[in-house]
């Protein structure tokens, strides 16, 4: 839980709040920040990878068929992918619960 949220006791902080494991931002669950999430309509998608390029959180990764799929663990729901998609294949859907 602590690694996902970054919520730890003052006793567990590194001296000077240093980060001693490079790349540990990957463990921080930013997915629970969002109020909307992107969904891709594969009928419209042209596999151009603009969503992958513009995503600030490395949410998109290419699958075997060449489509870019979202990892919602990191997706903050910023909507940049939907805004930049040249064929409007990505829609932002409101989170229901």
């Amino acid at each position: 839980m602590a690694r996902e949220s970054g919520i730890i006791s003052w006793k567990e902080l590194n001296p000077g709040t240093a980060i001693t494991e490079p790349g540990n931002a990957a463990e921080l669950k930013t997915g629970d920040w969002r109020s909307m999430h992107p969904e891709t309509d594969r009928g419209k998608c042209i596999k151009c990878g603009q969503c992958y390029i513009f995503c600030p959180d490395m949410v998109y990764a290419k699958d075997e068929e060449g489509y870019y799929v979202q990892n919602y663990y990191w997706c903050k729901g910023c909507g940049i992918c939907a805004r930049e998609c040249p064929v409007a294949a990505i829609k932002m859907i409101e989170e229901v619960d």
Partner: peptide, 23 residues
């Protein structure tokens, strides 16, 4: 052995950082 010194402290860690310094 790369490390990061002086990262941002969000509201959920700043108090702990100050407490650690004070202690």
């Amino acid at each position: 052995r790369p490390i990061t010194i002086g990262p941002v402290g969000m509201p959920d860690v700043y108090t702990e950082a100050r407490k650690a310094h004070d202690e």
